[in-house]
């Protein structure tokens, strides 16, 4: 016992059962999925081989990745300017902005998705108004296509992008920027060479968060895509519930999981990921 406590903090003993339980509850299902992906319908790598054989699967994966990249790009860029504005405005305005942000954060994804249909649909508020004032003859196809999916997803993701950035910007030591100006750097020089690099951990955190969450989007593409924008999450659900190709579903799920893990690994080559998740940079 003595030898053990020498190497291990006794606190670990207290949380060990919980840790074991959580590990079990997470690993069990994940291993089950991995197992399914190499055993259903028959043992072997047949499900993974399908990726090479079928253009359709690759196209679905590519659609998903493409939409996620664009979503991430826009959400993080917009999120960065929102967070920047929030940090630099008066306290009063800041609380207004935070309230609005959180309100939209809390509203259900279904409500937000259908609101876009009402606003930008074929007979939506925007199209009807534009037609009435004679600016357009035919309604603009904002919704029920990839553009619609992107609008819906970016809108949904912005709060997720803002919050990590806000935390990162608030914890900056503003005297560093003052020093930079004092030493003769212009405003934009200070931003690009001091401010932006200092907020990189927040930027990476929000990029990762938005990208990974986007990968699993289901409702928004299904509704706003008009059935023609098929992303992995919806495809997996169809394979599970309708076509009973659980092996294919498990394979795609495993692919997403390893894709995310690989992305984290690549990131970790370039930077200390612990700083992204709030740890101290050492």
């Amino acid at each position: 016992m003595n030898a053990l406590t020498k190497h291990m903090h006794p606190g670990w003993l207290i949380i060990a059962p919980l840790l074991a339980l959580v590990t079990l509850l997470y690993l069990g299902p994940i291993l089950n999925i991995l197992w399914l992906s190499v055993t259903d319908p028959e043992p072997g790598l047949g499900n993974y081989a399908k990726l090479g054989e079928s253009d359709a699967l690759l196209r679905i994966v590519w659609t998903t990745v493409r939409i996620c990249i664009i979503t991430t790009l826009f959400s993080v860029t917009l999120g960065y300017s929102i967070a920047y504005a929030m940090v630099h405005c008066h306290q009063r305005q800041k609380s207004y902005m935070l309230t609005l942000l959180l309100v939209s954060f809390w509203i259900s994804i279904l409500v937000r998705t259908f609101s876009w249909l009402m606003l930008l649909g074929r007979k939506g508020l925007v199209n009807v108004t534009l037609e009435d004032i004679g600016l357009i003859a035919e309604p603009i196809a904002f919704m029920r296509n990839e553009l619609g999916v992107l609008i819906g997803m970016i809108h949904y993701m912005i709060p997720y992008a803002v919050l990590p950035l806000l935390v990162s910007m608030q914890s900056l030591d503003t005297r560093v920027m003052d020093a930079s100006r004092n030493l003769g750097a212009s405003g934009s020089q200070t931003f690009w060479r001091i401010y932006l690099p200092l907020t990189t951990p927040g930027l990476v955190a929000s990029t990762l968060l938005v990208f990974i969450l986007s990968l699993g989007f289901y409702v928004t593409p299904a509704v706003l895509g008009g059935g023609k924008v098929l992303m992995v999450a919806e495809y997996i659900s169809v394979q599970l519930l309708v076509t009973l190709k659980w092996g294919t579903a498990a394979m795609l799920a495993a692919l997403m999981l390893f894709g995310v893990l690989a992305m984290l690994w690549v990131m970790s080559r370039f930077m200390k990921l612990s700083t992204v998740f709030g740890g101290a940079a050492r």
Binding site: A56, T63, G227, K228, V229, L230, V238, Q239, T243, K245
Partner: peptide
């Protein structure tokens, strides 16, 4: 198989 072929055709 029909559902998958259909989904692939419309997406």
């Amino acid at each position: 198989d029909a559902v998958n072929a259909f989904l692939e055709a419309i997406s």
